[in-house]
Amino acid sequence: MEAPVKVIEKKATFKRSKKRTVNWTPWVFVTPHLVIFSLFFLVPILYGIYISFTSWDLVGKPDFVGLANYKEILWQKDSSFYTQFHNGLKNTFIFVLLSVPSCIIIPLLLASALNAKPRFHKLFQSIFYMPTLFSISAVVIIWTLMFNVNQGPINNLLGKSILWTGSQPYAWATLVIVTVWWGIGGNMIIYQAALNGIPKDYYEAADVDGANAIQKFFKITLPSIRGQILYTVVITTIAQFNVYGQPLMLTAGGPTDSTRVLLMDIQQNAFGSGQSIAGIASAMAFILGLCIMVVSLIQFLFLRNRD
C-alpha cells in the first residue's frame, strides 16, 4: 500500500515545479475507501497470516512459534486439533462436493424451463429467487420444523419417521436441500440472462439438421453459456467452502461431528468459551483459504482450457 503512494508523491513534486500544481482531488475520492479497505481487509489478512505462525490468546502478545501450528494440525496425530482439523476439512469438502453440483444443475434446469416462457413464468421466477433474501438463521428455523421427526410435513408425507438432522446420510441431505432452497436464485437469474442471449438461429439450424433436444442442449446451449457457468461454479464453490450457518443451526455438526465443518472449529477455537487459541484457529483459516484459492484456480483453468 505504502510504496505506490510514495512514488506518486515524488513524481508529483517533480511535476509541480515544471508545470502546474498537482490535483489532489482524486485522492480525496479514493481515500475513504482505501482507509476502510486497509484497516478492515488488507491489514487483517496480513496479520491473520502472521498470527497463524504464533501462539496467541487474542488478548496478550502473540508468541512466534514458526511452523508449530501447521505441524500440529497437519501431522501431529495425538493432538485434538489434528483430529478436529482433519474432520472439519473433510466435512467441508464433502459439503462442497454435494452442494455445488446441485446449486449449478437445479438452477440451470429452472432457467431452461423459465426460458420456454410458459404461463406464470414471471411468478415462478420470483418464487425461486425469494429465499436468497432471507437470513440463514430464519431459513434454518423454518426447515428444522419441515424435517421434524413427528410433526414435520416431510415425514408425514412420506409416512416415515426418519431422523433427518440426526442420522446419516439424511443429515447431509437436509443440509444440501436447505442450501439449494436458500441459495440458487442468483445462479438461476444469471443463467436466464445467458440463455436469452443465445441467437435463435443456432437452434433453427440444428432443427434443420434434425438434432433432438438433448443434442441441442449439449451442443448449443452449454457451450454458449460456458462463461456464465464458469463464473457461477467458481463463486458457488467459494460460497459453499464458507458454509457455517446451516450445519451450526440445523445439525449442530452432528450426528457425532459428521457434519461439523472447519469454519465451526475456527470460530470455536478463536471465539468460543474458554481461552482463545487464535494461533491454531488462524492456521486452520489459512489452510481453508488456501484450499479455496487452489480449487478456484483449478476450476478456472479446467473450464477455460476446453476452448
Binding site: 478492515f40 491489514v43 491473520g48 498470527i51 467452502f241 464458507n242 475456527i266 488462524s282 483459516a285 483459504g289
Partner: peptide, 13 residues
C-alpha cells in the same frame, strides 16, 4: 483472497 483468513485479526482490530 478468501475472507476467512482475516476473521480473527478483524475481531482484534
Amino acid at each position: 483472497f478468501p475472507g476467512v483468513v482475516n476473521l480473527i485479526p478483524l475481531y482484534k482490530i
